[in-house]
Design a protein around this nucleic acid. Sequence first.
DNA 1: ATGAAAGCGCTAACAG
DNA 2: CTGTTAGCGCTTTCAT
Lengths: 336, 336
Amino acid sequence: MAPTPARSATIEDVALAAGVSRAAVSKVLRDAYGVSDAMRERVTAAMTELNYRPRIAARAMRGRTFTIGIEIPDFGNQFFTRMLNGAMRALADTRYQVVIAPAESGSRHGLRAIEALVDRQVDGVIAVSPRVTSEALERIAVHSPVVMFGRHDTSDAYDTVAGDDVVGAQAAMSHLLELGHTRITHLTLPESDEDVPSPHGLRLRTYRAEMESAGLADQIVVVRTDEGQEAAYRTMREALEVGAPPTAIFAAHDELAIGTLRAVAEADRAISVVGYDDVPIASHPALGLTTVDQPGDEMGARAIELLLERIAGRTDAVHEVFEPRLRVRTSTRRLA
Amino acid sequence: MAPTPARSATIEDVALAAGVSRAAVSKVLRDAYGVSDAMRERVTAAMTELNYRPRIAARAMRGRTFTIGIEIPDFGNQFFTRMLNGAMRALADTRYQVVIAPAESGSRHGLRAIEALVDRQVDGVIAVSPRVTSEALERIAVHSPVVMFGRHDTSDAYDTVAGDDVVGAQAAMSHLLELGHTRITHLTLPESDEDVPSPHGLRLRTYRAEMESAGLADQIVVVRTDEGQEAAYRTMREALEVGAPPTAIFAAHDELAIGTLRAVAEADRAISVVGYDDVPIASHPALGLTTVDQPGDEMGARAIELLLERIAGRTDAVHEVFEPRLRVRTSTRRLA
DNA sequence: ATGAAAGCGCTAACAG
DNA sequence: CTGTTAGCGCTTTCAT
């Protein structure tokens, strides 16, 4: 290949080649009103001839980019894959393309990734960032439509799509309590906080409330672990070695539950484990993880719908909540 | 303090507020030569005051965007998560941001996603697209640095980072043969083709070669399935019902292997299964999947290094190959 | 050390 | 139906 590449074709080159004006080319490009078939044909011919690709950056300076940005905190968590699938499907018949910005593991709340997306002129943002302050989000939402995934706050500036984490956590806890468990540990992330409107905050709060109303306040144990299966495994391996081990563990999400299952297997203990999300692997017979199913794909698709509505001009906020559903499998058993 | 601005601040607003020229602000922004400390201070003050964020799209029209685009074919495959982690880590200390474009499941080869990235003016692209023709890639590589992940072709126009799939597949096959298996099925994707320089093409070819040189040419069985655990599960569930079932299955990657494991478990048969990649879940004791470990994070980090070199001006191609390593676990057993 | 000014490729009035 | 033209926000010579 030539080491000194020619610069690629611009709208002007196409116009020249087709013997028309730039405006005409632009109109063909955007399918705008007022182009004769003859002209359209010559222009498209010139475009393929020159291998023309419109520069989105140039378009961005005048109008839309037809790009949706999605911020994701952790690719290791397959729940977000479900969400993404739903989002992609909802966008399939539109002109929009998706770009995804992964939150750097360091800056744990993902604001940087959201801003990176906005700086790149996406037409709207879907973000999974329970820890970003609503002030920061509202500042962003002034200039760019925003739909937050998993949040339970109800700002006027952005929409939210979330699961009903109270109902879900209650289902998980009721299940364990009905099986006769009393020493139930909750495994969650370091930053989960009952006062933050995050899924994990709500699950934690619900865990506490359910333990208390079952008269088990003195049995409450909350273990914290870093994100990911591996970290959860190491944390629980240690946790199971000290003191009286629990008979059941309610993990804040499936990745943590799967890591826990590993620690439990190695410790060779009959400890029941419940997760949250119903990631695809959870139903694998080798794991048989009892978990709270969230309709991730529907939620992702709905988030896109809301975002497109906002892009189209809606200004009042919508806050949508999806119902979770307990899936009982073999990882939970009646207390012997 | 100004009221909430209808449109967000531009470089001009900052210049006005700081009482300097646009050029001066731009220089501060880019840390360019020739700015006094006093000026720098006033400008940065104005920037924070106005909550200024540079528009990458505008910058893109003149120079770099400091954005790396990564195209990924399947988020369900956790091997790509390993790759992404390595890539993110390698980029952590640079000015670059990552955006990821998922290949639409329809257009199975991901060219559209790569072009979406290039249209958005990324400074370089890493792509996982074994099926895109080298012609298409070379056309793109003329205008944008490209590193292909997993390909075994050696174009001059783009770099490649791949695992040694022949060695890896040989290791998998040798392992099964040494355990006494002779009826070994290979499970791969519909489009895998021995003549395409893709990982799966090579694994397929190696499977055939190893069977033949073991004198088992008449035992060769290749089963095709769509992408994903679920599809692999359904395919293998059916495949295990007809004819004489194999005693071992070599799956082209771990997601397929895990789906296979599910079918095997349900069929309640003692069939050995080997995967490829060593995704995180593979080592979980509940699965114990024997597999060929590829150093995904190193490979991702190396891909970034190569891309940055190309962005910096290197024009000769580099083709890097990483050595895989067999991980023997409980999913393979000596033939009874 | 600082600023004026010329574009980058595209869209969207507006004129013809 | 087609073309002219004025920017969008930024970088980058080139003067001063």
